[in-house]
């Protein structure tokens, strides 16, 4: 008996020594997930596991982001996870985030989980002031965020003070006015009461629609220099590339829509945007950081691919997935009406 036990123990420690796994933590917008990955896994294996765990099928919007030095990078699907240049202390931390954004949020997002993750990500970016949000829009959006959290407005339940623990507005907005917390709550509650009759899901979608209408998400900004050495901002989004003055992130000086670009090349650490119109100037730029240049290139390719894909018929698999999700949504709505 003892020898059997000893041999079993020996076997277990041997197994441990030969462990072919490493641990990762995947932080989503509403949960932290722990996974044990095989050493040979590629980015795709981990990404697919996360999507399966979340029940998320609209995978094309998302990516796994990690911090590297003073910037961020996205896990490559066809490269081994451990071959990426990142700190290897376990658990390795990744953030599961929207990498690409829809052109039209209402038409394109199908699953509730996709919508929820987008909602949480955009809301966080607005509250943390990564995105500029005018004061009046902050109040309107806060009323929909509250609606998404608390359900439909009910004056018997939602009494003064019910928002006292909530983070409602960007600090910058609060500092612009001489208003107490109670006054802000009252403003937001007035709006909340005005859009009664919606479900939480509908409130989330309304939030995203308003934010999209006001162009408050979807652009990835990068500090760049043009060939004359002028500091500029580059914005990459679902519709194309935009060049901004660093002091005005909202109105581009020049835009290059994807369908008007003949080609974007990257060589000798320099980008060149060649417009379709051969008479138009080629726009050359770069970022001083190699990692940022790589990130720009990845986002250009990914956004352009999605732009082209939106203009083609969905694959059978995607058609089926969208149909299932729509049926599920319709079934839920029917159930709600019946109740």
């Amino acid at each position: 008996m003892a020898s059997v036990l000893a041999s079993k123990m020996g076997l277990n420690s041997l197994r441990r020594k030969q462990a072919k796994t490493f641990s990762v933590t995947v932080v989503t917008m509403d949960a932290d997930l722990e996974f044990s990955c095989e050493l040979k896994w590629k980015g795709k294996d981990l990404f697919e596991l996360v999507c399966r765990t979340l029940g998320l099928r609209e995978t094309w919007f998302f990516g796994l982001r990690y911090d590297v030095k003073d910037t961020v990078a996205w896990l490559k699907m066809d490269k081994k996870v451990l071959d990426h240049d990142m700190p290897k202390e376990e658990p390795i931390v990744f953030h599961f985030l929207a990498k690409f954004y829809p052109e039209n949020v209402e038409d394109e997002l199908v699953q509730d989980i996709t919508q929820h993750l987008f909602f949480l990500q955009v809301k966080t970016s607005i509250l943390e002031e990564e995105i500029y949000c005018p004061p009046e829009a902050s109040v309107l959006l806060a009323s929909y965020a509250i609606h998404a959290k608390y359900g439909d407005y009910d004056p018997n339940v939602h009494k003064p003070g019910f928002l006292s623990q909530e983070e409602l507005l960007p600090k910058r907005v609060i500092n612009l006015y001489q208003m107490t917390a109670e006054m802000w709550e009252e403003r937001i509650t007035v709006c909340y009461a005005e859009h009664r009759g919606r479900t939480r899901d509908e409130a989330e979608m309304e939030y995203l629609k308003i934010a999209q209408d006001l162009e408050m998400y979807g652009v990835n900004y990068f500090s760049i220099r043009n060939k004359k050495g002028t500091s500029l901002l580059l914005g990459v989004d679902a519709l194309g590339l935009h060049i901004y003055d660093p002091s005005n992130k909202l109105t581009p000086k020049i835009s290059f829509p994807w369908n008007e670009i003949r080609n974007i090349s990257y060589s000798d650490k320099e980008f060149a945007i060649k417009p379709l119109d051969k008479r138009a100037d080629v726009f050359k730029f770069n970022s001083s950081k190699l990692r940022v240049n790589k990130l720009i290139l990845q986002l250009c390719i990914g956004n352009h691919d999605l732009f082209m894909r939106r203009r083609r018929v969905d694959s059978l698999e995607v058609q089926q997935m969208k149909m299932q999700a729509r049926e599920e949504k319709a079934r839920k709505q029917m159930e709600r009406r019946r109740l």
């Binding site: 829009a137 109040v139 500092n175 001489q178 403003r187 005005e194 308003i210 209408d213 909202l250």
Partner: peptide, 27 residues
């Protein structure tokens, strides 16, 4: 930038008006 939905547009204008009297002098 105005939202496509006129209802939102009106709501934003109303909120802007209601905030105005409380704006800090510097704004």
């Amino acid at each position: 930038n105005n939202p496509r939905n006129p209802h939102h547009h009106r709501a934003l204008q109303e909120i802007r008006r209601s905030l105005m009297p409380f704006a800090n002098e510097t704004t």
